[in-house]
Design a protein around this nucleic acid. Structure first.
Lengths: 329, 329
DNA sequence: CTCAGTCTTTACATCGTTGGAACAACGATG
DNA sequence: CATCGTTGTTCCAACGATGTAAAGACTGAG
């Protein structure tokens, strides 16, 4: 692997001159520039990023801390973050926490200026005092924590409200919710949106219709739906706090021969790609993931470039995509 | 951020002694060791990986080059690769190529000893002479290319054959295939397995039942299925070269009110998590993704540690998971 | 023809770490 | 008591890049 030294020797100039050419700095005589460029070409020189960053005091990496790549929402988001990071010449390091406190703590502990320039975090279990960060960070989604860290995400209350209002507009009156969670801030906000929508329509808030989910996987949605279908009066609609729960719920409904949407209308949240192809296809709250990824990366870039202090809370747009799980073809 | 120098000053020893303690090397007096450990604790020292790797001539990273994270198979695989890499103290850099030749070329070009120690590649379009690699690499899956690079994957011919034999055992005689592709090696092998299974059962190979797919997304599967259903005699079974195609195919079938599995049996390939929850759930060839990830990473680790030259072709196990898309509950 | 001022290049130190050589301390050995 | 081997420690150079300061080359004005 060629180094600056090799190129310099070949071009008959000093190492620094080559460095200057590579970085487009300062004044270099046309004649030298040409020779250096030829030498660069001939040797196939590529800068050693480790060395460059050591010298510059940057690492060239940002961390993306998320629960699990096998969760479609995070996989899709990760893809978009990688694309957005590329524009700032950042590489993305993905850390999986599996949603556990231990996993999140260890991921956070491994961050630091020696490894990454900044971090995008999607924590689920962390408490306030875990956030002793040594690099700029952005939180994705809302959280139970109240820490002075930038945030990017949609308005969860409004989004949930929109979803439930849609169910109400279809004439449903016994609307269940799946995904309540004791610690997750996002869950609390979506629940609040659910409650608000019911209130606005003067529908009662029925405890037995709100089912918690400790995890947000398909299996949890199926289990929750089964318990709802076991009620003496089952719901005629269900709002799931993410698409995986909804897919699981629809699966459970199908197994009990409950028809969607006629017997049961289902709304999800996240708009995973798979939701457009399920049978029936799933109505879902669609956050603008591209906007989230871009906003998060851009925010970090500004923080790293110039430490300006105003705390930011970026609200990205969302929409409700109505599909067959609420309105039959 | 504390450096070795800070720790050394605090402990009253030389930098190298601290380095020795950190790396567990050599002999250090118990007394000094204790003092150093206290100082490490007090300063919260964490090694600067850039500097360490610069010195050691390693980068601490491996690249994972894949088409797209929003494809569930690759997302799941990426998660497993990250986990496997962690055991060798490697961080994983994910590069998305979006399955294009340009994307793959640029990803390959950006690799190099200055950035990563090794690479795991999942190319779809690259030609033989594109593989001018400067770091050890592993190819995932089979390929049309014939290059001296280690490979990890399942026996695609046998796997496809198993899938089609299963359909035949159900009494299906007009079995279609979706996913033929002019350049992809994997597609060619799966097609070969399909053909072999038909031959063994003395069933005719019918051209019109083999539908190509330029991409392997759900939309492509739906489009292909529609064309099959438009045939004067539609198939009674279909083998899709991946689960996304199968999900799309089932979706198209549902839209045409074709019942799965009674009218049409469907088999997929990859066993994505979503396939267990679709309605009906999808019968699929399940490669052992954990084994693939682990084998790939371990292989690279051996290559990096000791350059031994025997070309390896690791065959990982697979199984056929029979679900409702071929056998009704 | 000198000098100031601008442009261009170079030598050197430095980022944080580790390998190797050199050195110091030590008890054991002859 | 000189010598030795072992153990423990320090010093120095190096990885590859870049910032700084200073030196060198060139220009035009006086």
């Amino acid at each position: 692997m060629a180094t600056l030294k090799d190129v310099a020797r070949l071009a008959g100039v000093s190492v620094k001159t080559v460095s200057n050419v590579v970085n487009g700095y300062s004044f270099v005589k046309p004649d030298n520039r040409r020779r250096v460029e030829e030498a660069l070409e001939a040797t196939g020189y590529r800068p050693n990023l480790g060395a460059r960053n050591l010298r510059r005091g940057r690492t060239g990496f940002i961390a993306l801390v998320l629960p699990e790549l096998s969760i479609p929402y995070f996989a899709e988001l990760a893809g978009l973050v990688i694309a957005a990071a590329q524009e700032h010449e950042w590489n993305v390091l993905i850390e999986q926490t599996f949603g556990t406190l231990a996993g999140e703590r260890s991921a956070l502990a491994s961050l630091g200026p020696h490894l990454v320039d900044a971090a995008i975090l999607s924590p689920e279990a962390l408490q306030d005092d875990d956030f002793q960060l040594s690099v700029p960070a952005v939180l994705l989604g809302e959280h139970a924590v109240d820490v002075p860290i930038d945030r990017v995400g949609i308005d969860n209350v409004a989004a949930a409200q929109t979803a439930v209002k849609h169910l109400i507009s279809l004439g449903r009156t016994r609307i269940a919710a799946i995904g309540a969670h004791p610690h997750r801030g996002t869950a609390a906000l979506r629940l609040e949106g659910y409650r608000t929508a019911l209130e606005e329509a003067s529908l009662p808030f029925v405890d037995e219709l709100v089912v918690p989910a400790l995890n947000y996987h398909r299996a949890d949605g199926a289990a929750a739906m089964k318990s709802l279908l076991d009620l003496s009066t089952p719901p005629d609609a269900v709002f799931c706090f993410n698409d995986l729960l909804a897919i699981g719920a629809m699966r459970a409904a199908a197994e009990r021969l409950v028809r969607v949407p006629s017997d049961l209308a289902v709304v999800g949240f996240d708009n995973n790609e798979e939701s457009a192809y399920s049978s029936p296809s799933l109505t879902s709250v669609a956050p603008d993931k591209t906007a989230i990824a871009r906003a998060a990366v851009d925010l970090l870039h500004r923080r790293v470039e110039a430490r300006d202090d105003a705390l930011e809370d970026v609200q990205t747009p969302f929409s409700l995509l109505v599909r067959e799980s609420t309105v039959a073809r």
